[in-house]
Structure formats: structure tokens, C-alpha cells
Design a protein around this nucleic acid. Structure first.
Lengths: 179, 179
DNA sequence: GTCTATAACTAGATAGAC
DNA sequence: GTCTATCTAGTTATAGAC
């Protein structure tokens, strides 16, 4: 762990490119070009491409462990509040690292032959936000749509009939004005 | 567009593997092995790897366009209701196709050297669900966390101070029992 | 610490026999 | 329609000079 200027520039370039293009989609060549060195230099500072990934994830991982430790010492409602705010703070602080985990959607969908579908995604989000011009309504709609899509994939063994009412419900609760 | 048994089996294998391992993470070799044919046979039925992707996305794309057309003819509240239910139905019907777009999280995070963090993710979700045993509470929490993470990445130009209160708010609205 | 050169491998795609 | 063999280009990683 000897501090090194080149080492830090490698980490910064890798974090940016992994977040933007994904781990698999980024080559050592790409990183070397941004840093302005050779691929061999990358592999002098790090044992492998994966070692770069692990190193740049370390600070985020440390903070995540710390949040987890804190939550385990609180009771139900205090923990829920701390978890909501702690999670939001965490993903805001480590955007690139989180992007590395949740990438792809933009990658694949924003380029040929699928770029033509963005207006439809945009309109769907607009409609779910109640065609409101309030940024908060728009962002809430984005959160719900992205979250629903992510969870349907994650729970790929779950029956549609079980998931459907729960998903429709959480969207309604989050989006509709309280009565 | 000549119907072909081999062609259909290629599409099914590709859909399954693209959803599971991602487009970049799946090779023509992998698909050929599952189908039980050679790479050359894949490329007899489709012009390229990308052509396979485009073809298997077609039905989902058609239904998405249809939903969009329907939404444009409804007024604000009817459209919002139709959008919520229509989107849920769409992602449930085309899980593999949606997984192809929203992959990665599992891929990277569920294997070395990061598999050790799943208990933390699990606990965070459990806490956000108010430590409830109700599946609906759990799923709602998953939707919110995944959605928040996705949107923070998407809106990478937005200032933290602008996003934070909106994200905390939508999570609270969706998760806390109504008063 | 950084480089050039290259090894060792894998990818998508093509040629041509059957 | 399917195959084997091959091409070309890109990948991570290593060797050894400076």
C-alpha cells in the first residue's frame, strides 16, 4: 500500500470507466490510454484487472460494513430511519462504485438498435409521475419503475400473481397523494 | 423469417443466457453448446450475435410500443393507473428480456470477491422493511432500495443535496404505514 | 517505475466441404 | 442446414530491457 501518484490515477480512471462501461466492457488498454501509460504499468501497480476492481471498491465496502454495524444496534423504527438515510447517503457518496454494480441498462438500451425506445421510457415515466412538472414526482416515478424492474428480475422464481398486487401497491403508495 | 426448430432453440438458449450472464458475458460458443450445434450454425440462422439479441427483443418491444400508444390516449389519472399496471405486466411477462437490460448487480456482486456482502444487503433490506415478516413489506423495501440506487446512477449530474430529500421522501411514503 | 514485445487465450465471423 | 477449420482482432498477463 505504498502511496503513488500513478496508482491513484489508475484507480480514478478505472472507477470512471468501470462505472460508465462496466467491468467487462472496459479493457486494460482503455484505462492505460486515459492514464497515459502502458498496460504493463497498470499491472506493475496491481496484480490483475480484478485487483484494480477490488481496491477501488474498498472505501465503499468499508462504509457499507460500518452502516450495517450501526443498524444492528438500533430498534425497529430507529433502524428503519437510519437505514433509509444511510443507504441514500451511501449511494450518493459512492455513485461510481454503485454504478459499477447496477450498470448495463444505459449501456445496452441507449445505443443502436435500441436507442429509439427512450422516448417511450420517457413518456411512461412522465405518465407515472401524473404528467407533473415537479422534479420530485418525476424522480419518484423513476425510482419506482427502476425498482420494480430490478426486483422482478431478482425474484425470477416468484409467481406473477404473487408479485403483481404487491408491486402495483407499493407504486401507488409511493406515488399517489395521501388522502 | 422462415420458421425453424433450430432457430427457435437458439433464441430460447440465447434469451436464457443473456438474461443470466449478460450480453457481453455470453459467447456464441456458450449458446452453441446449450443448443447442441456449432457456432457456424448460429451464424447461419442469424447474421451476427447482435442480430440474435435484436430478434429475441422484438416481441417485448412490440408490446412496449403498444402500451405507449394506449397511454397517449388517456387522461392524467387514467393514464397513471394504466401505466403502473401496464408496466408491471410488461416486466412480468418479459422477465428475461428485462433482465438483459437490468443485469449485472447479481453477476458482479454474487461472486468472489464480493459475495460476502450479501448478508449486509439482506440485513439492510430487512431493516428497511421494518423487520417485518410480511413478504409485501420485504418486496417493497427491495423495490425502493434498487430503485434509489438505479436513479442515483442515472442522474449522475444532479447535486446530492437536490436528490437526497426526494429519495428519502419517496422511500418513506412507500414504506411507512399511512397515518 | 515504465516501457516494448510477445505469449497465451478467447471472441465473433467466414470459407468451403458435405 | 450443419459441420470443421481457419481468420482476424481483441483480451489479460508476462518477460526482460532501460
Amino acid at each position: 500500500m505504498v502511496p503513488s501518484k500513478t496508482r491513484d490515477r489508475i484507480l480514478a480512471a478505472a472507477a470512471r470507466q468501470f462505472a460508465h462501461t462496466g467491468f467487462r466492457g472496459t479493457s486494460l488498454h482503455d484505462i492505460a490510454v486515459e492514464v497515459g501509460c502502458s498496460k504493463a504499468t497498470l499491472l506493475y501497480h496491481f496484480d490483475s484487472k480484478e485487483a484494480i476492481l477490488v481496491t477501488l471498491m474498498e472505501p465503499a465496502a468499508r462504509d457499507f460494513v460500518e452502516l450495517d454495524t450501526r443498524l444492528r444496534q438500533l430498534d425497529v423504527e430507529a433502524a428503519r430511519e437510519a437505514a433509509i438515510e444511510g443507504f441514500v447517503d451511501l449511494v450518493l457518496r459512492y455513485r461510481q462504485e454503485v454504478a459499477l454494480i447496477y450498470d448495463t441498462a444505459r449501456q445496452l438500451f441507449q445505443q443502436a438498435p435500441f436507442e429509439g425506445y427512450w422516448p417511450l421510457v420517457d413518456n411512461l415515466t412522465h405518465v407515472v409521475a401524473g404528467r407533473s412538472t415537479d422534479p420530485a414526482a418525476r424522480i419518484s416515478a423513476e425510482v419506482l419503475l427502476a425498482g420494480i424492474a430490478a426486483i422482478v428480475i431478482d425474484r425470477d422464481e416468484e409467481r406473477d400473481a404473487d408479485l403483481r398486487p404487491i408491486l402495483v401497491d407499493v407504486a401507488r403508495r409511493a406515488l399517489l397523494p395521501r388522502t
